[in-house]
Amino acid sequence: MAKSKILICRDIGEQAMALLRAQPDWELVVWPQDSPADAQWVLDNAPGSVGMVVTLGEKISEKVIDAAAVAGPELKVISTMSVGVDHVDLSAAAKRHIRIGYTPEVLTDAVADCSIMLALMASRCVTASQAMLRAGKWGSLGWGPYLFCGPQIGSGPTKKQSTVGFLGFGRISQATLVRMAAFGVTRCVYYNSGRVDRTAEDRALAAKLGLESVGRVELDELARSSDVLFTLVPGGKDTFHIVDEAFLRKMKKTAVLVNPGRGPIVDTDALVKALKEGWIWAAGLDVIEGEPNIPADHPLLHEPRCSIIPHIGSATIETRETMALLCAENLIGGLKEGKIGVEYTLA
């Protein structure tokens, strides 16, 4: 009996690959390089594949999905080693009844930790102070009473009122709030596009964390009241440039914007303008529009109050290994047992 063809667009690590190779009735076709799979290679090898393993680096377009049905059995499962699924054409997958496995919950703590790190880096002027240090200028500047000072995250020694805001209030946002509570924030506001009543849950969360309140607000209020704002919504047309010039102009001049979500959530041109003209204090970015193709002369790389890291929110060894294993298990479950452990629900 012919083996089922499985397209592996990236080697996802020793443990996960061993699990996939242990399937006796599968023929693995693996991209041989330690880089995102070439788009033409994916297209050429898609026909006849019943399952795919992909990462954020591969764009699984309608063209690829259609190509998979050209010869042999049709594609049944796409398993992605990511929480985001905007690199897969979900509409095309839905039309062909292709199921999607993904890896959301296992990276919650790692991304929440990274979100806090970015908030601290941005508020405490880490980019500008490190640039001075690496340029050998520390000696000429010495110490100054207010040199490289920034706004304190949380209440601080003055016990000020401090509001943390979240654009999106899912698992990662709530894990980030737990960490922010330790810094003495007094209030949490968030915006979710859905209108589900969370009043009881929000009151319980506020009591648990010792906050004055936790509650949903509209976008205008979110912008105006947040001292630190985390953007943690999925990518896509519904959230494209939701943080635009109008939004940024409503924020406090001492506010810090942190984007650990998706680059296109924030309008890059508007953010550059906001930082140059002082509409907000600073920004911390794990993601940026156009990534990973960010040239050395990108304007945000040269903004002293913008701290940027290259999409490493989930980059702990433990998290990535767990994501890889879940990715493999999702594919095996979907194809062999008819049940994907963690499945993305297609619209």
Results as ranks from 00 to 15, higher is better:
residue 170 G to T: 03
residue 160 K to V: 05
residue 188 C to R: 04
residue 190 Y to K: 13
residue 185 V to Y: 10
residue 149 C to P: 00
residue 160 K to I: 04
residue 151 P to H: 12
residue 157 P to R: 13
residue 180 M to K: 05
residue 173 S to H: 07
residue 156 G to R: 00
residue 165 G to K: 08
residue 150 G to C: 11
residue 176 T to W: 00
residue 175 A to V: 03
residue 190 Y to N: 11
residue 153 I to S: 09
residue 162 S to M: 11
residue 180 M to D: 02
residue 161 Q to H: 14
residue 160 K to E: 11
residue 173 S to Q: 05
residue 168 G to M: 09
residue 164 V to C: 07
residue 168 G to V: 10
residue 162 S to I: 06
residue 191 Y to A: 14
residue 170 G to W: 03
residue 148 F to P: 08
residue 174 Q to R: 15
residue 161 Q to V: 12
residue 166 F to L: 11
residue 162 S to W: 10
residue 151 P to T: 11
residue 189 V to Y: 10
residue 175 A to Y: 04
residue 150 G to R: 12
residue 181 A to E: 02
residue 157 P to N: 06
residue 172 I to Q: 00
residue 172 I to W: 03
residue 177 L to T: 05
residue 153 I to E: 02
residue 149 C to H: 15
residue 159 K to L: 15
residue 156 G to H: 08
residue 156 G to T: 06
residue 151 P to K: 12
residue 189 V to T: 05
residue 177 L to A: 13
residue 156 G to S: 13
residue 159 K to M: 12
residue 152 Q to I: 15
residue 160 K to A: 14
residue 175 A to W: 04
residue 187 R to E: 15
residue 165 G to A: 09
residue 149 C to N: 15
residue 177 L to M: 14
residue 161 Q to S: 14
residue 190 Y to Q: 11
residue 164 V to E: 06
residue 154 G to N: 08
residue 153 I to Q: 12
residue 159 K to H: 12
residue 150 G to I: 12
residue 184 G to A: 04
residue 182 A to E: 05
residue 163 T to F: 02
residue 168 G to D: 06
residue 188 C to M: 13
residue 181 A to T: 02
residue 158 T to S: 13
residue 181 A to S: 15
residue 175 A to F: 01
residue 170 G to C: 04
residue 160 K to C: 09
residue 175 A to T: 07
residue 178 V to W: 01
residue 171 R to G: 00
residue 174 Q to V: 01
residue 159 K to S: 07
residue 184 G to L: 10
residue 149 C to Q: 14
residue 177 L to W: 01
residue 177 L to N: 03
residue 186 T to K: 07
residue 148 F to C: 13
residue 187 R to P: 00
residue 187 R to Y: 10
residue 166 F to C: 08
residue 148 F to N: 14
residue 184 G to V: 10
residue 182 A to P: 01
residue 171 R to Q: 12
residue 183 F to M: 04
residue 156 G to I: 09
